[in-house]
Design a protein around this nucleic acid. Structure first.
Lengths: 344, 344
DNA sequence: GACTCTTGTGTGAACGGTCACATTCAGCGC
DNA sequence: GCGCTGAATGTGACCGTTCACACAAGAGTC
């Protein structure tokens, strides 16, 4: 039976229940000898405080809910892992609630999802469903958000994000540096009404280099959607470098390239985003930008925690995006005579 | 806003608080007219029951904790998704706690991970850490387990598993049917002291065909470990078909094959396990066995639910393993055109 | 018309904590 | 000795809900 109460402990230690409560809640003015006795009583009885009673009596709860879409996507899964890890070490319990990708939730459904009113929430809002959920959340719930791009001019302290814009710019510069006349972009669905950060970074680099700025092609998140989108893109001979919205999309593009007889990287350079564990083993191994989703999740938790308790320690920042050059990117095919290009 | 109580509702509806409680907890003996009034009062006030109070007062709580290792592994993530989906539709809140892969937790730590003592648990125990956690869980907690193989002779009603043995046998037969003299196996780490189910199924098929039974090579879960293990395996010319523990491992093997100059499927056939979304897009597209992890998760939840409430409806069973033949498996190189014998 | 039986509703007491306040008992200056 | 202070501990009420009952009507039964 797991049914010992604070009063049982008090009886065993020969003190009042309030003293036990004091001991449990850390240092108040309790004599060392008393604390000692209470502690041993707790240990012997195997007492564990009842979370529900604690919460009911007004004590701040150490739990949070993560709202995310599809957890099988690498970014979501990694951020979730970061949150979970940080939360658990801080003694928080983590609940999870998965949003349907397409159908954005309405306010009622959302409220019903949160186990208890007032439960703190972290939203992983890389896609539109997440962003919408974030908007719909009632203002009184404490919330931190992992987003693709900060909203508006004044992001406020509730949001964390990776520097996708810089990352995309770096990847694009890498390709331009290899001699490509321009870089095409297979964009992820934008999470907001505005252009995605990665798309902007890509455009930054193109503009900075003064090259043509082709229309980005909007696709999905999966290999399947990358494959689909690439089939039309690769019909055009002038496409020599493709920056993909993520590594999964890049995988689809690699396949499309194979099917249309384009050798990578000889005829076509493909660069991904995220650096999934599999990406180094693809054929060819994928050039990509490594992103610290886990660190991002940890940071989000730190944010939420300081929202609940301003005296909580600050979280260390997450890692910068890092370009990982592998086999899938090579020099512009137009420059080298025939078989010259191609080894990396 | 979120601070209305059952008594506020009662006052607004002109009834006693107990009547409101009855209405909330479904149909007891409440007059239709009264129920109606209470319902509108609830709607107008935007009342939401306080979970903590409800739990404290002894109401069974509709929540569960999922104990799993690394959620970025496809099997874990998919099973989690299945659980979450089924749980949410049934009105359960899902907490998640991630186990470190290597360091198995001790009983105390495990208990501390549960939101409250006696919290129902689903353990995703595909690996040793999960199995150990399952063993350590105190007997009083209601638990369902998603396992790689049922424990002992009498699995009991708490466990669900996929027919990995049959699945492996099918995949192996497929390869033998293509003329391969035998099939080598790159096994996942076994979750128990006994041989993994997939390994047994593979052996079943070899034995049934009366061919040589090479020692299985034990590796890990990742592309990296598959790559590592394959490098030594592929030094041997007689290895023409490899059954991999999962698709990620197969990815590593594909890369190793490329590096050692073995064309797949011409010189080497590679078959995976799981059918991850990416597997259809690999180069070459992976022949694999599709497993219904999501359905398995749903089933596990159904099990737990009936454990808590025997009158709950039964869950529909999950799908059978299905062999998906793609590009990575082909006829035995010894028979076909081109230089005969292993050393081409 | 007094008697059960059913149906609907109200009342008091938990549940296991925390909070605000009351109490005890040293040590201290006067 | 007296009151004053402050540290250590105890007491009562309350958080919002459910549970076990008690109670008030109306419907049958005889």
């Amino acid at each position: 039976m797991s049914g010992h109460t604070i009063r049982d402990v008090a009886r065993a230690a020969g003190v009042s229940y309030q003293t036990v409560s004091r001991v449990i809640n850390g240092n108040e003015r309790v004599a060392d000898a008393t604390r000692e006795r209470v502690m041993t009583a707790i240990g012997e009885l195997g007492y564990r405080p009842n979370q529900a009673a604690r919460e009911l009596a007004g004590k701040a709860v150490r739990s949070l809910t993560v709202l995310t879409s599809d957890t099988s996507l690498y970014g979501n899964a990694s951020a979730l892992r970061g949150i979970e890890e940080a939360a658990r070490t801080a003694g928080f319990a983590v609940s999870i609630s998965v949003l349907a990708r397409n159908a954005a939730p309405d306010a009622d459904e959302l409220r019903a999802r949160l186990v208890r009113p007032g439960e703190p929430v972290i939203v992983i809002a890389f896609d539109a469903a997440g962003v919408r959920a974030l908007e719909l959340l009632p203002p009184e719930v404490p919330v931190a958000a992992v987003v693709e791009r900060p909203p508006g001019v004044d992001p406020g302290p509730r949001h964390v994000w990776l520097d996708d814009r810089l990352a995309a710019a770096r990847a694009t510069r890498h390709l331009l540096g290899l001699g490509h006349r321009t870089v095409h972009h297979l964009a992820l669905p934008s999470s907001t009404a505005r252009t995605a950060q990665r798309t902007e970074g890509w455009r930054d680099a193109l503009r900075e280099a003064g090259v043509a700025e082709p229309e980005p092609v909007e696709g999905g998140w999966t290999p399947r959607s990358g494959h689909l989108a690439a089939r039309s893109l690769l019909e055009r001979a002038d496409v020599t470098a493709v920056l993909c919205g993520n590594d999964d999309v890049a995988l689809g593009v690699l396949r499309a390239a194979r099917e249309t007889g384009r050798a990578v990287p000889r005829d076509l350079s493909v660069v991904g985003f995220d650096d999934m564990p599999a990406s180094a083993y693809l054929a060819p191994a994928l050039t990509t930008v490594r992103l610290d989703f886990e660190g991002l999740g940890r940071t989000a938790f730190g944010l939420l925690r300081r929202l609940l308790d301003p005296s909580a320690p600050a979280q260390e920042p997450c890692a910068e995006p890092e370009l990982i050059v592998r086999e899938s990117s090579g020099p512009w095919p137009g420059s080298g005579p025939g078989p010259a290009g191609g080894t990396s």
